[in-house]
Amino acid sequence: MEMETIRELQAYGYAFASVFFALILYGYVYHLYTSKKKGGTDYEKYSNMALNDGLDDTPIEKIEPLQEEKQMRSNK
């Protein structure tokens, strides 16, 4: 391929990806800041993951262990 064409493709690749990533990023910002109002997640609650991080503390959103894992854990 000609270097000219490569350069041109590179420039388009750069410019359009910038726009694409920026849209995703700011879409994400919009999602983050409206999510609570729309009845979705309140993101701020996740900061408690650092503060209440004992093994006995209740997880913010719990994962139920699979059946066999449960057994393995209770065997201990």
Partner: peptide
């Protein structure tokens, strides 16, 4: 630092857009 990649044969508006959005990012 990617903005130096914008090559001069590409239309102006694409270049400008690329630079602006990279700052925004």
């Amino acid at each position: 630092g990617g903005h130096h990649l914008l090559y001069s044969t590409v239309p102006d508006w694409v270049q400008t857009m690329g630079s602006i959005f990279s700052v925004v990012l």
